[in-house]
Design a protein around this nucleic acid. Structure first.
Lengths: 263, 263
DNA sequence: ATGGAGGGTTGACCCAGCGTCAAGGTCAAG
DNA sequence: CTTGACCTTGACGCTGGGTCAACCCTCCAT
């Protein structure tokens, strides 16, 4: 008669594995000697070897039971099913591999190539890295929100950059984003923005943009928090009858001078 | 500001996943409002999206951290390493698939083809299924014990079966293994066995067989337990100066009439 | 004011297949 | 008698969360 470690050695498994098979019911619990040790016979060795043979062949332990008791036909059927699972898993991993390869190839962390190109264009205009990072984070969110529209949105942004006023606007963002109240650039920026807004309204480019209100509010508040000067610019524009930041709107006259919505 | 479910929705993950990332330290725990709710800002959305981007690409969560903080070079290196892991896993699964295919193709549960052929030959000699099962279990253990030698051992067994005495021996095992004391077949079997043993000793085929003593004892005791007549046969042979079953030995004269070793 | 719906919170168990302590009982040998 | 090797049960860990459970918070309608 055998102890558990002898049994395990004969079948080429660990003691822990044998006890695990007892727990999941694959191997019946044997008799104990008077001190509580399990004592095994050769039949246990045989059953354990068969369990390992199946397990080594990739059969999940949960299905080993049925296969051990199966006749030749169910056996073949179950094996085919297990092979199907294996094939599916392999395909999944291969898919993962190709995605990883694409990620490494260039899309820098959640950004589609078109956005990377747009950010590069901003850089070439002299925009500072800190501002670029703000833009980048915004674009990450937008890309996650509307992945199908992102390329067309970026295309429109490129068109906007053909407007000299837009280039002038970005030319203000070369240094650190730490503008204080009283900075003369704030009024200049507001002027440029207003001109851009007027032109956008005239071109009929204002209205449904595909984002929901919550999302717009989130983007607005983020911008306001990260760029100290933004609030000041917004205040000036508000006096002149504009609201919004990401989404531009003419404020009706009767709502002028009301509070900004809570961020 | 966002609640956890809003954050999760923006990044396209479940609330549970977000909390999981908190627990494993991938996403810093944010402030709470006075009622204990977590409140998130847009930066959390961005970080969460990046986490998901990497995780979806097959990066294990444990490595996402380092990749988020990595510069472009470490990034590329880590990605390559992850890809290596993926390739290894795919190979492992493919290997598993082919083993499963071989298992289904014929090696009937832990038995190499040569043994299956040998058992078939026994069957063709008229040996009963019950005896075949006993043999089969024994061969499963032997094959697990010395997988490299199994084919040559079987080849030797086939040679032994060319001996008419061996065929005669097996011809006794056609029915149920329930021989009682006094059965005349017992003496006949003992006679045949003794002739075979004598011939084996003369041919010098007795001695080292590659099995350790424990293993031989295990096989012996199993045979004795499963076949009621075996004990009786063995007793007769012992009187005539033989010991062992699986491994045959001439017992020196001074050890005659001692106890059988404990099984 | 109260009740219900629809959020949120922590905590704990679940999946596979064991590895790895922990804390203590048993056995054989010197 | 001691030592060291082996046995026992029990519990936690890993991956990436899913799925309750039990309870709290907020808002809306009555």
């Amino acid at each position: 008669m055998l102890t558990i470690s002898q049994l395990a050695a004969y079948a080429g498994v660990t003691v822990r594995a044998v006890r695990h098979y007892h727990k999941v019911g694959l191997l019946p619990e044997p008799e104990r000697d008077r001190s509580g040790y399990r004592i095994y016979d050769a039949a246990a060795v045989v059953r354990l070897i068969r369990i390992r043979t199946l397990a080594d062949a990739g059969v999940p332990l949960a299905r080993v039971q049925e296969l051990l008791d199966a006749g030749p036909e169910e056996f073949a059927g179950s094996v085919q099913e297990i092979d199907k699972d294996l094939r599916a898993e392999i395909r999944r991993l291969q898919d993962t591999r190709s995605r990883l390869a694409r990620l490494a190839a260039g899309e820098h962390l959640a950004l589609p190539q078109s956005v990377v190109g747009y950010l590069d264009r901003l850089r070439s205009l002299g925009v500072g890295e800190r501002y670029i990072e703000l833009e980048r984070d915004a674009w990450i969110m937008i890309a996650a929100q509307v992945p199908d529209l992102i390329d067309s949105v970026i295309a429109k942004k490129h068109e906007e950059l053909d407007d000299p006023d837009m280039v002038r606007l970005y030319s203000f963002f070369t240094g650190e984003p730490d503008w204080q109240a009283g900075d003369p650039r704030i009024v200049e920026v507001a002027d440029i923005l207003e001109r851009l807004m007027i032109r956008a309204v005239e071109a009929g480019e204002v209205g449904a943009d595909g984002f929901d209100d919550q999302f717009v509010a989130l983007m607005d508040s983020t911008m306001l928090e990260s760029a100290p000067g933004a609030e000041l610019v917004l205040a000036i524009l508000k006096e002149r009858g504009w609201s919004g930041w990401i989404r531009i709107e003419r404020v009706p006259a009767d709502r002028l001078n009301t509070e900004l919505p809570p961020s």
